[in-house]
Simulated scan of single mutants.
Amino acid sequence: MAEQPNSQEKAPSFSMQRTYLKDLSLEMPNAPAILLEQEGPTVEVQLNVGGQRLAETIFETSVTATVTTRINDKVLYLVEATQAGIFEAANIPAEQLDPLLGIVCPTMLYPYLRANVADAITRTSLPALHLAEVNFQALYEQRIAELQKQQQQEQPSGSGLYVPPGAKTN
């Protein structure tokens, strides 16, 4: 006879409850004179992923893009947009929760962010800028490596074990 799983154990579940544009700012500080420039612009893009726990199984994850476009060291436009989402993650093992919130959630939000940034820029009458695809797993791994390096510098005589932020040690 097969063992029945404990009825108190529940299957892991994950879903996006809502996505929303949390913040959007567009500045064209040198308009209209800069619109007469003939040179092509240079573009700088910065991304940041953030998040917070809202309730026991409810989390907010956000992806912020800052796009600065310049012509001859003068800002053509500056766009900062934050796309956020509310996610429910229940019965997820602790070691899988941080990667879920740091990789999967931003990957789900990023297409919305890309569309909002392109739309904001199009409304300036300038050609839309479509942000490149992003490998959030690589960004997450880079962040973890930086945290590990920082921990090693702070505790050079430690045990060598990586302790994730928020984890309790005895």
Rank of each mutant, 00 (worst) to 15 (best):
M1Q: 02
A2I: 03
A2G: 02
S7H: 10
S13W: 07
F14Y: 15
F14W: 12
Q17H: 07
Q17P: 08
R18I: 06
R18S: 11
Y20V: 03
K22T: 09
D23F: 11
L24N: 03
E27C: 04
E27M: 09
E27G: 01
M28I: 11
P29Y: 11
N30S: 10
N30Q: 06
P32R: 01
A33V: 09
A33K: 03
A33N: 11
A33L: 10
L35G: 08
L36T: 14
E37T: 07
E37N: 09
Q38E: 15
E39W: 05
E39K: 14
G40M: 13
P41H: 13
V43E: 05
V43P: 03
V43C: 07
E44W: 06
V45E: 00
V45Y: 05
Q46L: 05
Q46D: 07
L47D: 00
L47V: 00
V49C: 07
G50Y: 13
G51I: 00
G51S: 04
Q52V: 00
Q52Y: 04
R53A: 14
L54E: 14
F59K: 01
T64V: 01
A65V: 00
R70T: 15
I71G: 08
N72D: 08
D73N: 15
K74N: 13
V75E: 11
L76W: 11
L78W: 08
L78F: 12
E80Q: 13
T82G: 07
T82P: 12
T82V: 13
Q83H: 01
G85K: 00
F87M: 02
E88D: 05
P93L: 13
P93K: 10
A94M: 05
E95P: 02
L97S: 02
D98S: 04
P99T: 02
L100N: 00
V104L: 08
C105L: 00
C105V: 01
Y110A: 04
P111T: 06
P111M: 02
P111A: 03
A115K: 12
A115F: 09
A115P: 03
V117C: 09
V117F: 12
D119Y: 08
A120N: 01
I121Y: 06
T122H: 11
T122K: 05
R123S: 11
R123W: 08
T124H: 05
T124C: 12
T124R: 00
S125E: 13
P127G: 05
P127T: 14
A128M: 08
L129K: 10
H130T: 06
E133V: 12
N135W: 08
Q137K: 03
A138S: 12
L139Y: 07
L139D: 14
E141L: 01
Q142N: 14
R143N: 15
I144H: 07
I144Q: 15
A145S: 04
A145M: 11
E146R: 00
Q148R: 10
Q151P: 10
Q152T: 14
Q152E: 15
Q155T: 14
P156N: 08
P156S: 09
S157C: 03
S157K: 14
G158V: 01
G158R: 05
S159F: 09
S159I: 02
G160Q: 11
L161F: 12
Y162W: 15
P164R: 08
P164K: 10
G166N: 12
A167R: 07
A167T: 03
K168V: 03
N170K: 06
